[in-house]
Nucleic acid binder design. Structure first.
Length: 494
RNA sequence: GGCCCUAUCGUCUAACGGUUAGGACAUCGGCUUUUCAAGCCGGUAAUCCGGGUUCGAUUCCCGGUAGGGUCACCA
């Protein structure tokens, strides 16, 4: 059954296919994955599809896509199989039934004869009396033989306070109210989570269960089932909750938690997401802020998982993403940018790999995520690199203070003529931003920096904000730079 | 309401009884400066409250308060 060596770590991520994955689920998967990887263990992806009502078509693929994007890989799972297949709970019903029969034989499980209405009545009564609802208060004296059409419940024989050890929270306890005759198998024949996850974890040899803290309350029930089945319990690793941004509520789909893939679509890097999520609920010993997934595996430690919850903060994610973008190689950065440049831009005559190469640093210093590049494209902040800018003549005077209105065209023409003259005097081989600045600067100082640099900026970019005009001039080269200045000049003379 | 968990700057966090309570993000100010960014330097800012234990509590204990979770034929 389970021949794993005791020292071999086995963890799992076991989502239910009820839609997309929000970052809370990702964080759980991340810790389980990192722990297995760190200890050369096994990481299993298991799908808990025992609620056919809530199941959402396509969820499994979506979950797999999300994990793959993040680089969280598994050793056993529904798509790749493995020694403990199948990995869909809906295909493991025989297994659950087998253990259910054992419990019935032991006298530890019985059929629940009540209708839903009767149960609701009990529940409403308990609530109105401000007591917790406990099924065992209504335990039938002579339950019918279980025929599979009624729910099967575990019989709690020893109602007592429960104590256990959690790898993160330490010693935990719960009062007897936490123990109740919960449902093992539903009337539709599918097991509840309570039964199925315990059987699966046992059969798959799972050594550490990572899950968030909403399960603390039901742990006494799980423990009662482990005992009833006579199987060893794994280690429990309770993760702190992730709170929704700005609020104090636990992050959840109901409150609009985003699909993790939306972050991909907005242009965040998977390693940024991992870095960011790792830091909500855990921190490294030396307070390193930026780390790669591989580095995370190296420094991850269950002992440093927090007890208290943390909130989602988009500013921090932006910063982390920026840091990861900076760490990429030049080639990777170009590739990253190219993904967000639309075809319409790539078709322009001036588009070339050389230009892309040259403007990469300009783009990268202005961007924290991929969608910022899209915004730059939409704002026209990149178009002029690949095609001629479109001018509005009055824009050339932007922020020009010294020139008198009635003579502005004449004066500006003089400035631009002079700029062209200076640029002409620079050798082709020396047409660098440093040399250009060196050549133009004295003149700019003489007549006023703004009055020289603004028209130059505008002539080159067609925009009132752009990178340094000297940088632009170098990128365009001497010929194109002078050509653009001449175009602006012709406009002024009209 | 019962039971359970949690509690350090606005946010993410560090400090395994002794620190001027540290870092990061955000924010504010300055530098740079030809715009937008980027960059650099600096500032503001926290131990929830009350008891106890101790020579000494952010740290340990108790109580309160606040927040979270749970009390499903959901996981």
């Amino acid at each position: 059954m389970n021949n794993n060596m005791k020292t071999k770590v086995v963890t799992r991520f076991a989502p239910s296919p009820t839609g997309y994955m929000h970052i809370g689920g990702v964080r759980t998967a991340l810790y389980a994955w990192a722990y297995a990887r760190k200890h050369d263990g096994t990481f299993i992806l298991r799908i808990e599809d025992t609620d056919k009502e809530r199941e959402v078509e396509g969820s499994i693929d979506h979950i797999i896509e999300t994990l793959k994007w993040l680089g969280i890989n598994w050793d056993e799972g529904p798509d790749i199989g493995g020694p403990n297949a199948p990995y869909l709970q809906s295909e493991r019903l025989d297994s659950y039934k087998k253990y259910a029969e054992i419990l019935i034989e032991k006298g530890l499980a019985y059929a629940d004869p009540y209708t839903k209405e009767e149960l609701d009545g009990f529940r409403a009564k308990a609530e109105s009396e401000k007591r917790p609802f406990l099924y065992r208060d209504h335990r039938p004296k002579n339950p019918p033989k279980w025929d599979g059409t009624m729910p099967l419940r575990l019989k709690i024989v020893d109602v007592k306070e429960t104590e256990w050890v959690d790898e993160v929270r330490g010693n935990l306890k719960a009062g007897p109210e936490a123990l109740d005759d919960f449902i093992l198998i539903k009337s539709d024949g599918y097991p509840t989570y309570n039964l199925s996850h315990i059987i699966d974890d046992f059969e798959m040899g799972v050594t550490h269960i990572m899950r968030s803290d909403e399960f603390i309350s039901s742990t006494p029930k799980f423990l009662a089932l482990y005992d009833a089945l006579g199987i060893d319990r794994p280690k429990f690793v309770t993760l702190p909750p992730i709170m929704a941004e700005g609020g104090k509520k636990k992050l959840g789909k109901r409150d609009g938690a985003k699909d993790t893939l939306e972050y991909r679509d907005e242009g965040y890097l998977p390693e940024s997401m991992i870095n960011f999520l790792a830091y909500i609920g855990w921190s490294p010993e030396d307070n390193t802020e930026i780390f790669s997934p591989e580095e995370f595996i190296g420094i991850f430690d269950i002992n440093r998982i927090h007890r208290s919850g943390g909130g989602f903060n988009i500013d921090k994610l932006d910063w982390i993403n920026k840091e990861h973008l900076k760490k990429m190689s030049y080639e990777e950065q170009e590739e990253f940018i190219l993904k967000y440049i639309p075809d319409s831009l790539k078709k322009l005559d001036g588009f070339s790999n050389t230009v892309m190469h040259n403007i990469t640093p300009i783009i990268m210093e202005r961007v924290v995520k991929g969608s910022d590049i899209k915004d730059m494209v939409n704002n026209g902040e990149l178009t002029y690199f690949f095609g001629k800018p479109v001018y509005e003549v009055d824009q050339l005077f932007f922020k020009s203070t010294k020139i008198k209105l009635e003579e502005k065209y004449v004066v500006l023409s003089t400035y631009i003529e002079k700029i062209i003259e200076i640029l002409e005097s620079i050798n082709d081989g020396n047409f660098t931003k440093e040399k250009i600045k060196e050549a133009i600067w004295p003149y700019a100082e003489e007549v006023g920096r703004g009055d020289v640099l603004w028209p130059m900026r505008y002539a080159l970019s067609g925009l009132d904000k752009s990178p340094d005009p000297f940088v632009l001039a170098e990128i365009f080269g001497k010929g194109e730079t002078i050509s653009r200045l001449n175009t602006a000049l012709a406009l002024l003379r009209k």
